[in-house]
Design a protein around this nucleic acid. Structure first.
Lengths: 156, 156
DNA sequence: ATCTGTGCAAACCTTTTGCACGTCA
DNA sequence: TGACGTGCAAAAGGTTTGCACAGAT
């Protein structure tokens, strides 16, 4: 996570932006964040430790993260924007459980390669892509083959 | 498109819903619609010929279409919901041009198969999926001819 | 000292809903 | 006739912005 911190601080000084206490707090909470939290959820979690912080500040800071490349905005169609830590060297896609709302990540080079081929067919220059599989995770699907590994109501 | 009409009318009678003039008008406009219009755009287009119709009616009717299976809701992350005609026998994905906003459809069975394999790996029961490739379409990309890949600064 | 950042509240934008009236069956 | 549908306007749910004060350089 050091890479991302440096990247952000470099971004700040390059743009003549200020390195405030709030930004540091939000940055660390963001990098420590487990998964794909919505701005709202992230904000609520943050307020537990830093009650004085404002939603707008969090929102604007997350936007800065996205602008400088350490965060990626995600939108799973539920009307909420989500942010996740973004690393340069890897791209992953998502499995979204429609029952418990948990989100799992996966990576598949074959699919990525086929996407490039599709793009070539259409003479399309890809800059980004998103692939999401919606359905029931192993904990939520009707007959779990083996033992459920952690019955968790999870988020919300 | 006859299939969809019948499907909708069956749906209406099955649910004891009424077959109003507005619903017919919206249904026909929807089936005639070329591409992935947002509710707002669809509504504006519809009002040209049917100025009396209300946004809420259009919205509720599109939801009915989705519920009965002749429409699929799409969300390309721009904060607007989009509806497209949905056929049972085919699934397609999208190429979204970030310059001209046009949306192209494609179908790739290999990718679909790989998705099923990924799901199996995670013991995930897929009910739906979405794959979108974002970038520049052939009309919008800098040089369509033979630019060596990588000569583009891309986004920001 | 200056210029940016923050927190609050309000604006915004799209989707959804309540309600009184109109319409289909 | 009675239940459902419609159109209007307002609510809701989320994101974004204006502004006056606070803080970083």
């Amino acid at each position: 996570m050091k890479v991302q911190k440096e990247k952000f601080f470099n971004f700040l000084s390059r743009k003549r932006l200020k390195n405030t206490n709030q930004r540091v707090v939000i940055l660390e909470a963001f990098l420590r964040q487990k998964s794909h939290l919505s701005t709202e959820d992230f904000y609520r979690q943050l307020r537990k430790k830093h009650p004085g912080i404002g939603y707008a500040t969090v929102h604007r800071t997350l936007k800065l993260f996205a602008e400088c490349g350490i965060a990626a905005e995600r939108n799973f169609g539920d009307g909420q924007m989500r942010f996740e830590v973004s690393r340069e060297d890897e791209h992953h896609d998502h499995l979204v459980c429609t029952a418990c709302s948990r989100i799992f990540e996966f990576e598949n080079q074959q699919i990525e390669q086929l996407q490039r081929e599709v793009a070539q067919t259409y003479n399309f220059q890809i800059s980004d892509h998103r692939l999401e599989l919606y359905g029931l995770c192993s904990d939520c699907r009707p007959q779990t083959t083996s033992a459920p590994q952690g019955a968790s109501p999870a988020n919300l």
